[in-house]
Design a protein around this nucleic acid. Structure first.
Lengths: 128, 128
DNA sequence: ATCTGTGATGTTATATTATAACGTAACATA
DNA sequence: TATGTTACGTTATAATATAACATCACAGAT
């Protein structure tokens, strides 16, 4: 059962879905001011919720956010991205064996794996 | 040949080496004000250089910095960490096959791998 | 039909993280 | 000594994120 989104959450999500690149919170705010969103709080609150339900992911190294293209995204916590340094596009990676790989890697250090964030930088197929 | 550090760079590096956990830039600043460092700029400039030579790494998801314990760290760009959610300690991972793994993973998406940032969250051996 | 808890909203203010911009000093070397 | 380069000091400001408070909407219990 899909959690139904509030108006503000829909507005923020649509802004992200309409963008080719990840957007910062204030960039989102700028884009949707015409829709009545007036403060950073409103954006951040919507983002919090959208991230919680897996509809949006944060790119930590860019302080930016992207809409998740996958229905019922499992990546509520763990995320893996390919980030093009040329066109700034971000491609989400869904490799099931990544978590497994990182679990094993963690075990070697007697570390109990919970979640991960992977950001791979390079040049995408469209740019080279 | 080791690049010789300036006074400010040494002060910042020592502050990070003395810390069990990663430190934010303003936290560093607070710690070293008694040594005559007065502005964020001085900290950030030192950090920039230290990161450039591989003596310090940034933990993106924490907006924090750690001293690298490895001599001649290759991780000028690619970094991999285990981050304990209990004690906040960060352990740097040096697995040579990680870059290779990510290179192959990238190729599947016709993406030219350059560098990566991997942050694994969980509980460290001391905490569980 | 009220009361009450919960979650969303709107708004102002502020905290936190990071960089711009400007002038000066130190130092190597041509 | 002129010159380029790099670091430094300082003030100001940009960019990112959260705190705090009052209000509203609505579901469910009494």
């Amino acid at each position: 059962m899909e959690p139904s989104l509030t108006t503000n959450q829909k507005i923020v999500l649509q802004a992200l879905e309409a963008s080719e690149q990840p957007l910062g919170a204030y960039n989102i705010l700028f884009n949707i001011e015409k829709k009545g969103i007036k403060s950073p709080q409103q954006v951040y609150r919507a983002l919090d919720k959208l991230i919680e339900i897996g509809a949006v992911h944060k790119i930590e190294s860019l302080n930016s956010y992207i809409a998740c293209k996958h229905k019922d995204c499992k990546a509520r916590e763990s995320t893996s991205f390919l980030i093009c340094q040329e066109c700034q596009k971000v491609y989400e990676v869904h490799e099931n064996d990544l978590s497994d790989k990182f679990l094993k890697l963690s075990q070697k250090s007697n570390f109990k794996y919970s979640t991960h964030n992977l950001e791979i930088f390079g040049i995408c197929g469209l740019c080279n």
